[in-house]
Simulated scan of single mutants.
Amino acid sequence: MRIIHILNHVQEIGNGIVNVAVDLACLQAKSGYEVAVVSAGGEYEALLELCGVKHYHLNQSRKPINTIKAAIRYRAIAAEFQPDIVHAHMMTGVILARIFKGRKYALVSTVHNEFQRASLLMGLADRVIAVSKAVQDSMIRRGIPEHKLRVVCNGTLGSPRTRQIQDYLPLPLQHPAIATVAGMYQRKGIAELIAAFEQIASDFPQAHLYLVGNGPDKQLFEAQAEATSVKERIHFEGFQPEPQRYLISCDIFVLASHRDPCPLVLSEARETGTAIVGTQIDGIPEALDNGRAGLLVPAKDSHALAEVLVQLLSSAEMLQEWKQRAKKNLERLSVARVHQETMTVYRELITE
């Protein structure tokens, strides 16, 4: 089987879509398939080459003249590589792949961010992979035919991008340490996390909050933190190429998202055995075994989040219990399982 993955770039910036595609491409190549990635390039090109994945450079920026150039370039790539499967991970890629599809190959797409209006374009594919049951249900409501949809939940454990968890060195964080690893976007609930921390900070004077990640709303959150009375205990750590070091070092990991289809960071947090608090939205409950592997609170509710943090910080027994719960049932969070289920989707199409 000859497989092309098409996405905007392969930069090492903590982008979950890129991470999923790179993991799949590497595991498929290691399994003996002919695999290529088509993108504008980035740091992961070296890893792809090491795993035996061919990389084709394609700039998909949405400027009129570049769109024409991209179409011509993509057609030439497809003619040279002659794929059986083209797997599109972003909107521009699925359009390009559909235009030149004909009967040459089967087209698969993955809906990573179904809350984006343009995600309906992923329905142009022959099969549409949803990264959680919540995403599948949402896409059906929005008009994607149910027979096209398949659920392949995200998982990162055993990723070729990362080392074994025991190989990461812990960080000298101030304890108790509360951390998040997330893009600095409003939808990631950073504002609510800061507000919740401010509510509990006086009762737990040793507690510190670590915010790991970059993004366009970072300055807003920095200004919010600066206006609190505990600004010296709120740490903006920026993008970290090894966020696992924060996960293994913190006492509580929080993901306070307003929208999140199936966040990869939750599988990474669970592997480290930190206590986890997540919001009851989209694919987060699925990633936490519907509340068995992490505590769930309503989205956009800093008071509810603060209450749970107080409970965990007030009881060493409760904190330890949720650390143990996080590490149960990790098998389903592996990249090997994602690879196998994705290959099943491909084979369905090829044998039709």
Rank of each mutant, 00 (worst) to 15 (best):
N19I: 12
A21C: 14
V22H: 08
D23E: 09
V38A: 09
V38F: 11
L48I: 13
H57F: 15
S61T: 12
K63D: 07
P64N: 09
Y74I: 04
Y74C: 06
R75W: 11
A79I: 10
H87V: 03
L96W: 09
R98S: 11
R98K: 13
F100Y: 15
K101R: 15
E114Y: 14
R117F: 11
A118C: 07
A118N: 15
L120G: 07
D126I: 09
V128L: 05
V128Y: 03
K133M: 13
G143Q: 01
G143A: 01
H147P: 02
V151A: 10
T156K: 14
T180K: 11
A182W: 05
K188A: 01
E192A: 11
P205H: 07
Q206P: 05
Q219P: 01
L220K: 12
L220I: 10
L220M: 09
E222V: 13
S229N: 09
I234N: 03
R245E: 12
C250A: 11
I252W: 02
P263N: 00
L264I: 05
L266C: 07
S267M: 06
R270V: 07
R270W: 03
G273T: 14
I281W: 03
I284E: 13
L288T: 15
D289M: 08
A293D: 03
L295G: 10
L296P: 12
V297D: 06
A304L: 05
V308S: 03
E317Y: 00
E317W: 00
W322A: 07
W322K: 08
N329W: 02
L333K: 12
T344D: 13
Y346M: 06
R347K: 06
